[in-house]
Design a binder for these strands. Structure first.
Lengths: 149, 149
DNA sequence: TATTTATTGATACTTAATATCAATTATTAG
DNA sequence: CTAATAATTGATATTAAGTATCAATAAATA
């Protein structure tokens, strides 16, 4: 039912740079550096995490590039339960996130039933649905284990 | 299927102050003032909107009070498509939001099928689900109308 | 009424992000 | 292969949203 939790990689490794170039953006040294760092990031990183790894790249450029990647769907932004923003590489086409309310760890999931339901709900809602965002807040297995010890 | 879009009020008007008092918080003039303003706010207001209406109340107190009300579930926080935070009085018990990607207008909806689905999905996801957040991004009727004119 | 305790407002600070703009790079046209 | 043009960058300042600190004040209580 639910595909890909954490380890499975359904989408073949994307050539992120090519995606940007296809949209007319230039291949530059800062962008290549940012993309390389992104590929090594765990899910749920911050813009500062990226910036910290690249002292030679301006902070503004990091934010600008993350914004481009958001727009092209290469990464997505989500929020911890307290509203703090986090980024995540989109490893599967369209997906949603689980977020641990204790440790903030982020996971991905995809469920076709969700998408079907959203279409059904759309029929009952005024206006045209152009997208949706779902975050499941969880106590992750590790945090549960830590608690019972 | 979907209950309450905008106008229907399922929950009888809450005595927000009583909710805070029940949790052990004091009834103070600033809190009463904030609650009064909140009751007149459209869905999708900002903390600054509230603060602006109450020049006599400190900004920090506005944020502190909004935080208390978030914790007690009296209001909820959601995000516009660009991540900008917005608040909304919870007019119905448990609900989700529609957010216009053009004008930012916020609406509420509730669908029992969503809740059922979340429980089903929960069974397939590691950890314990403690909550969820769903935002439907839409082009609202007004924006569609404006566009075609 | 006195005392305890919570709350407040001012202020400074933090985090996440955007705006400005001159300097630099990449692209393209010649 | 250059020159011109156009996009991108980094530094810096600024904004938005919120938190931390702490002395002063207000509410609850003894």
């Amino acid at each position: 039912m639910i595909l890909s939790i954490m380890t499975v990689q359904l989408t073949p490794r994307l050539d992120i740079l090519a995606i940007l170039e296809d949209k007319g953006y230039r291949s530059t040294a800062p962008r290549r550096a940012i993309i390389r760092i992104l590929e090594g990031m765990r899910e749920g990183f911050t813009a500062e995490d990226v910036s910290r790894e690249l002292p030679g790249v301006g902070r503004a450029t990091v934010f600008r590039t993350l914004k481009l990647l958001l727009e092209t769907g290469v990464i997505c932004r989500l929020n911890l339960i307290d509203g703090a923003p986090r980024y995540s590489l989109s490893r599967i086409e369209h997906h949603h996130h689980t977020v641990c309310v204790k440790c903030g760890k982020v996971g991905e999931f995809r469920a076709a039933t969700v998408e079907r339901l959203m279409r059904v709900i759309g029929a009952d809602i005024p206006g045209d649905i152009v997208g949706h965002r779902i975050e499941l807040y969880v106590n992750c297995d590790e945090c549960i284990r830590d608690e019972h010890r």
